[in-house]
Structure formats: C-alpha cells, structure tokens
Design a protein around this nucleic acid. Structure first.
Length: 867
RNA sequence: GCGGACGUGGUGGAACCGGUAGACACACAGGACUUAAAAUCCUGAGGGGGUAACCCCGUGAGGGUUCGAGUCCCUCCGUCCGCACCA
C-alpha cells in the first residue's frame, strides 16, 4: 500500500501545539539530572528571522534536544537584544515609536522561531529594552561605579558622523563605524568608560585554558586585540630650551632596550604634550602637527604614509652615554595612544626608524650582529636587521645575546632610577557612552555642587521618556524639554540627568546570566547562578570574536568583583558558525533580482539565467552573504510554509560542517525535502507491516542479513551520538541516510529475525533523527504505535556486543600499496594474519618472485608485506 | 609587514591516534514505471590504459621522515581571517 505524502506544514503546527500544551520544554530549576546550559547568541529584533538565525538556532536546538534526551536538565532560553539604532531610524523614517517598532518585530520573530520548532523555555524570555531588565543593568552600572570599574574621562574618542554617536575602539573596523560604514572622526569628549584594562592580563592569561573549547581564531584575535608587550620605560633628560618642569624629562617606552646604544634620534607623537607645548612658539611645528591631524583616515593608509618629522632643536641626553646628545623630532609615525607616545630611534634594527634616519641624515649604527656575520664589515643597507644575534658597539653589552642585553639594561635602568620594566597593552578602556535615545540610560545625575551623583537604588530604573521626537539631529534625550531636569539626590538643588545611554553591547554582556533567574529581584540569583552558570555551550557568529565575546568576559569579572557572580568566565565552550551565502542575480540594467525572480537553465558552465518578468538575460554572481541590498535572500517563512521547518533544519545541518559557510541552493533544499519524504515512507511501510508498538518478541536467533542490519543500526547510534556531541552534524546526518538506505533495501527481503531487526532499526532511526527533525520524529514515533512524546524519550544505548565484529576485513599491502584484502577472525594472532596474507595470490603476484624481507602486521588494521 | 587557519572528484564534503582516500549527499548519465511529464525506483561514475582479470596515476607544488603520509616535518604557491606607524 502506497503511503501518503507527509504534509509537513500541517503536522509541524500540530506537534508545536502539543509541545506547548504539555510544557515539554519548560525548564525546572531543581533536578537530580546533570545541568546543561545551551545558548545561542540572542537576536536583534530587526523585523524578520533570516537564514543566519535559522542556522544559529537549529545548531543550538539539535544540541539542546540531544542533551535533553541524554538525561540532562537543559536550559535553552531565548531573548531579544532589543536596544539599538535601527529602532530610531525606523522611528525617523516611518514615524513609529522605537518601542512599538521593536515589540512588533519581537512578536513576529517569536512566532517565526516557534514555527521552526526550536525547543525554547519561553517562560524565561525577556528583551533588553524591558524596564525590569535594564533596571538591573543600571544597578550593575552603579555597583561598577562604586568599584571604579565605571568612570568618566575626557579623551580622544571615535565619532561616527552618520550614527551621531561615539563608538568603542572594538566597533571601529578599518577606520569605519562597524554598522554605518562611515569614516570615524576623532573628537575630544568627556565620556563614560568601563575599566576593561584592569583585567587585560587576566583576560589574556585565561585564553590559554580555552584550547579545544573555543575556536583558535577567536583566541588569537583576542590575544592580538589585547596586544601585550613587555618592555622598558626609560627617562631621557632634555636640553636646549627652557622647558616647564613637567616636560624637562622625556619618558619613552621600548621593547628593544637592547639596542639603546644604536639610538640616533628621539621621536615624539604630534599629540605629545611636549610637541603641543613647543608648537605654541614654533609655526613650522604647528603646521606639521595640523597636517598630521588631517591625514588621519584609515589605519592602513597611515601605516603606508611616508615617515616625516620636524626637528624641535631640543636634545636628549643618552642615559648610558651622557656625552651623546640625540635630536628630538616630532614624527608622524608615533601614536600617542600607545606606550608614552615617545620613542628612541634605533635605525639599524627598526624599519621605520631606518626610513626616518635615511631621510633626515641620522647615523645608522648596527648593534646586533647576525650569527656568522663579520663585525668589521657588517652594515645596514635598505633593510633594518630584526633577527637574533650578538651585541656589538654597545660598551658593557658587547658579546651578550639580545635577551641578556635587555635584562642587563633593564636592571641598570632600574638601579639608577632611570626607568622601570613595564608591560604595555594595546587594549583601551571600553567607551560605553552613546548619544542615542534607544538604549539603557546611564543612571547618574550631574550636580553643580556634588558632581556626579548616582541615582538612588530606590529610584531605579531610570526609564526612557515616551514623548520624544527625532526631528532634529543629536540625542533626543538631550532635546527633551523636562526629562533631564531633576533635583540633586544629595543637596536637592536643580541638577541634570546624564543623557548618554549605554552601548548596546553592555546589554548583551550579562543576559546569559539573567536567563538563569529571569524574574529575580536582584540582577542575578546566587542559587540559580551556582546551578546553571556558566553557559556550557555558546553558539554564534564569527563577527563577535573580539566584540561581544571580549566584553562579556570582562563583564563577568566585573560582576564577580561586585558580587553578582562567582565565576570569571561566562562561556565554558564556544562554537562559531559559518554564514549562509547565496548566488546573486543582476539584470542587464544593473538591478539586483531575488532568487524567485530568476529562471535558471543548464548545468555547470552552461548555466544561464533569465528574468521571469521579461525574459532578459541575468548575470549570475558568485555566492555571497545573504543581504537585503543584494536581494540574494531566501525568506525562512517561505521555506517553512512550502517544505516545513524540518526540511530547512535538515538542509542546514547536512553536508557542510557547522563552522563553515554554507551555500543555500534550491536544489539542496529540494534534496532535503526528498529525504524527509523517504524517511516518512519508510516508517509507514514498517508501521504497516511489522508488529505495532514496540518490536514484539525478540527472536532467539538472527540470520546474516538481520545481524548485519542490527550492527549497522547500533553502530550508527554509537557514532551519531559522538558526532552530535562535537557538532559534526553533517557526518551524523550522513550516517542517518546510510541507515535509511539499508532499511529501505531490507524491506522486501526475508530472513531469520529480519522483520524484528527492521522494526528495531527503524525505531532507533526515528529516535536518532529527533534532534534534527523533531516534528517528523514525533509523527513517526506516533505512527510506530507509541502514545508518548519522542521529545520525552531517553536517548537509546547501543548493544555493546553489536559494536564489534568476530570476523574483520583488513587491507593487505605490498610495499605500501594495497593489493588485496583479508577477512579473518578479529582475535587472529600476528602469525596467523601473516601466514594468511602471504598465501594470497595477488600478494605473490605483486612480489614478482622477490623474497619477503619483512612483514608488518597491525592487528585489526593492516598487513604490509615488504619485498 | 606580523600572527592564525585552510587547500581532497564536476560540487558540498567523509577518512579514529600515520594504516583499504573519496562515506553520505548534490549535480550528471543510462534504465524502469507512465500516453506524456512530474514524482519514485534501479544502475553507473576520481583520471588514464585494457575485451577482461588487472595495471598505472591521484588529496595545491616540490622535498623529507616512515614498512606505510590527505594526516607528521621543511620550502614554495594559493585562499580566507585577525592585528597593523604597537616602538
């Protein structure tokens, strides 16, 4: 009897309703089971779910459902990273309030996620723009403020002229705003910062313990970003002009103090206080400094710009060779933001210094002699020597290695009070002020008399005013007629509220902990934290390798310092998924076309595309990240309505490893849909022919065919489990297909115990596919005669005896080339295997009469006859 | 420039700890069913040679270690990513 097509869209809605009604995925805070906290990066409610979300939440859901079946008490929550600029843009463009726009989007996207069948405990849902959430965030801020982890300072900051707000260093990519793409400007502003640099060393050191649990590239990215370097701060006395007391000595930072005797000039940043001071009376210098400011575009352009400088006429006294006076230049390649904004130039062993010295005629004295070079003839040409070697021309350092010389100089500098060993970091404090409306208000009040006054706990949250306008540029909170005017909590005098809001990355730095007790009266609940934290497995995009993942690591430490957490690291293991890409289509007139607007014919290089509307040729572009601007998007809703969520999920997890980019193709989706139908058909056949509800009485013996099928099923079970645990879902799916193929082939065969074995293997298949195909899984489970939910079934255990073979097949090589294979008892001895191998005809033929020199036998693996 | 990752059929990708390379799928070709198409099912397939048994070549290129290398080491080429005037 032919089975009916599985109507996925209808059945999926049914099973989603059943899960909801029975509270299947409602998480208990108390359990004897081991806990498992599975989390995917929560979405920004931009409007609709996109394929990147489908991938992210499918990857996490497979793990959550698997772990649940494996007997864990699983926490798998969902929320909304709901503050941010797009809501304000929508408000400006469409005259909708950011709040209304955001919550509308959340409602849409929640429904879409439910339609995907993601096993979420929705009772824990929150949005970061919910006042109860940001109330706790304001409390955390005030605790950070008390601990001096939050502070205000005036500094040169990145200003995004499109977003009309400042940005943190991490949010500037190649000199442009990470979201707007606008070239950022440098502005001197007074802003709020988090003291992430206090944890630079810890954040760096802890990365060493992440091996295997976090992707390598994330760890290296964070190491690079933190940028630790060990060096020496060294003081040079200045001569030549009368200088104010503060500027009489020049403090420099170097990591090459071994080359101190090769110094031939000093260079300071145009922003250095000394340069600024001298520019007041030196017009040329002032012009030069002004020019340097203007060049500031991208970092890369800066790195390639010609090295230039202006001699200040001031001389610096060499600390270990007082008769040597070095001219002090203001130079365009010295940045104020690193070290002390001043260096000594050693042209022989630094390329930039060399370029500079050649241009301005400074001496180039080599002080490190490469191994094997002759001290009498060694000279520096166009390239500085950066390698290892022995010190020369360096008085008391001569003959030492670089490391020994560094140690000697550092020791002498410290003994003579000339300097100190210093560790420098590239990492800057996290600038969290944003001059925007749709964010968490920073809960402080500025009073003329009392300065910065925290908003009292009892008055939290400081909520955003509803009646705001977006008709003029700048911060709507600042424009608001009344909101910022308050009485000082200390003295009662008229005072002003802080109108900056927090960077939205603050919101996402601790949400993972809020999920553990989303309704607690304090930011976190100690008991819930002890039970659930940290997140066992976190899944999200690669773009947060430094941004979010570094901020959250810092924030966890801050929360520990303020007693809101007892751990240092928020995520025990991290997985970064690849993106979903799709071909692009462009008409002759240059317009982008949606995949549905294009008809494609032919294969390979013969593939041609035409526009559905007018038949005009269309250019097929290479696959790129799905984006609305290129129109190479596929709406998940269309897929779910047409094929069902399981098909979308299956396509997402099959074929490509989760960490790689995946090309979305219509053919691939159709292929996944076909597999869904094949499995459905298989289960129908089995359910109709075989005993209902359970496998029935187990036969006393199995024929060869039945035994083979049983082995295949139990081995698949064994390795599918292992592959799911390490997120190699594509391999797990391949094994499910293999088992499906074998089962379909076995349906029409007969043999001892085969009917029972088919039934058993089919039930195992259904259970194994549950994490990936949860709706089809429930449907098949029901068809097999069960009135329980598959989602409530424990993960089956393989029969150990079926995992090993009595007879095994091993390859036989002659001189490393495979010539035959040998089927032999698994317990066969080395001698037995050797004898059997030498008796094989192809072996004798390959030897061609040569005597056997040696036979390598690796039991259960291979035989190699060497002749 | 510095640092990291990767490179396997037409395509996505498998291959435990160095042990039968190409599992599984997509696309393709041939066949069955059908008035026809769709759907479904069966068969084939890394490249080359041979009627065949079989043989040769093959994991970016070149070298090395080993009985044996996709896997380990060195050099080079290419792709992707991170940092980048960092002293």
């Amino acid at each position: 009897m032919a089975s009916e097509r599985y109507n996925a869209p209808v059945r999926e809605k049914h099973w989603q309703q059943v899960w909801t009604e029975r509270g299947t995925f409602h998480t208990q805070d108390k359990s004897k089971k081991p806990k498992r906290y599975q989390l995917e990066m929560f979405p920004y409610p931009s409007g609709r779910i996109h394929m990147g979300h489908v991938r992210n939440y499918t990857l996490g859901d497979v793990m959550a459902r698997y772990m649940r079946a494996k007997g864990h008490n699983v926490l798998h929550p969902m929320g909304w990273d709901a503050f941010g600029l797009p809501a304000e843009n929508a408000a400006m463009e469409r005259k909708i309030h950011p709040r209304a726009w955001t919550y509308d989007n959340i409602n849409t996207m929640r429904a879409q996620l439910k339609a995907m069948g993601v096993s979420i405990d929705w009772s824990r849902e929150f949005a970061t723009c919910d006042p109860p959430y940001y109330a706790h965030q304001q409390r955390l801020f005030l605790d950070f403020l008390k601990k001096k982890l939050a502070y205000r300072k005036t500094a040169k900051v990145n200003w995004d002229p499109v977003e009309n707000t400042v940005l943190a260093n991490e949010q500037v990519i190649d000199g442009r705003g990470w979201r707007s793409g606008a070239v950022v400007e440098q502005r001197d502003l007074t802003q709020w910062f988090f003291k992430i640099t206090a944890y630079a060393e810890e954040l760096l050191a802890a990365l060493d313990g992440f091996a295997g649990a976090w992707p390598d590239f994330v760890c290296t990215s964070q190491r690079n970003w933190i940028g630790r370097s060990e060096g020496l701060e060294l003081t040079f006395a200045l001569e030549g002009t009368k200088l104010p007391k503060k500027l009489e000595k020049l403090l420099i930072f170097t990591t090459r103090h071994d080359t101190i005797f090769g110094a031939s000039f000093m260079a300071i940043s145009p922003e250095h206080p000394l340069a600024q001071h001298l520019a007041k009376k030196n017009k040329d210098l002032a012009t030069f400094i002004e020019d340097c400011r203007k060049i500031g575009t991208t970092e890369e352009a800066l790195a390639r710009a010609e090295k230039k400088g202006v001699d200040t006429g001031i001389l610096a006294v060499h600390p270990f060779q007082p008769e040597l006076k070095l001219p002090v230049y203001v130079a365009n390649f010295i940045v104020m933001g690193y070290g002390t904004g001043a260096i000594f130039g050693c042209p022989a062993h630094d390329q930039r210094d060399l370029d500079f010295a050649r241009k301005y005629g400074r001496p180039v004295l080599p002080v490190v002699l490469p191994p094997g070079a002759d001290a009498a003839t060694f000279a520096i040409g166009a390239e500085a020597y950066l390698g290892e070697g022995t010190m020369i021309n360096s008085q008391f350092l001569d003959g030492l290695s670089i490391d020994e010389a560094k140690a000697e100089i550092a020791a002498r500098a410290e003994a003579q009070g000339l300097g100190v060993r210093k560790v420098n970091y590239r990492l800057r404090d996290w600038l969290i002020s944003r001059q925007r409306y749709w964010g968490c208000p920073i809960p402080v009040i500025h009073c003329a008399k009392d300065g910065i006054v925290p908003v009292p706990q009892t008055e939290l949250p400081v909520t955003l005013p509803e009646d705001v306008t977006f008709d003029k540029p700048g911060n709507p909170l600042d424009h608001h007629p009344t909101w910022k005017h308050v009485a000082c909590p200390k003295c009662g005098a008229p005072a002003l509220r802080e109108t900056d809001t927090m960077d939205t990355f603050v919101d996402s730095s601790w949400y993972q902990f809020r999920f553990t007790a989303p309704h607690a009266a304090t930011p976190t609940d100690k008991k819930a934290m002890r039970y659930w934290a940290p997140v066992d497995q976190y899944i999200g995009g690669k773009e947060h390798a430094v941004l979010h993942l570094l901020y959250a690591r810092f924030f966890t430490r801050g929360m520990k310092a303020t007693r809101h957490a007892e751990i240092d690291e928020p995520f025990s293991s991290m997985f970064t998924q690849g993106i979903v890409i799709h071909e692009t289509y462009r008409s002759e007139t240059g317009e982008w076309l949606l995949p549905g607007e294009v008809k494609i014919e032919g294969e390979g290089s013969e593939r041609r595309a035409t526009a559905v509307s007018n038949g005009q040729p269309v250019t097929i572009g290479s696959p790129e990240k799905m984006s609305k601007s290129r129109k190479n998007v596929v709406d998940p809703d269309d897929i779910i309505e047409h094929y069902g969520a399981d098909t979308a999920r299956l396509f997402i997890v099959s074929d490509s490893p989760p960490d790689r980019d995946i090309i979305w193709t219509e053919a691939g989706v159709a292929g996944a849909a076909r597999q869904v139908q094949r499995i459905s058909r298989l289960v129908d056949e089995v359910a109709q022919r075989r005993p209902a509800n359970g496998a029935g009485t187990r036969p006393g013996s199995f024929g060869a065919e039945a035994l083979q099928l049983r082995k295949l099923a139990h081995r698949a079970l064994n390795s599918v489990s292992q592959n799911i645990e390490v997120l190699r879902y594509n391999v797990a799916v391949a094994q499910l297909y293999e088992l499906t193929n074998a089962l379909l082939a076995a349906l029409d065969k007969s043999g001892d115990g085969l009917a029972w074995a088919v039934r058993e293997a089919t039930e195992l298949l259904v259970q194994m596919m549950g994490p990936m195909l949860p709706h089809l899984g429930e449907d098949c489970w029901e068809r097999l005669g069960y009135n329980t939910l598959l989602a409530d079934q424990p993960w089956p255990a393989p029969e150990a005896a079926l995992l090993v073979d009595d007879m095994i097949t091993i390859a036989v090589q002659v001189n490393g080339k495979r010539r035959d294979e040998l089927t032999i008892a698994r317990t066969a001895t080395t001698d037995e295997i050797e004898a059997a191998a030498l008796g094989l005809e192809p072996v004798a033929r390959a030897l061609a009469g040569r005597p056997v020199k040696k036979v390598i036998v690796v039991p259960q693996r291979i035989v190699n006859v060497v002749g």
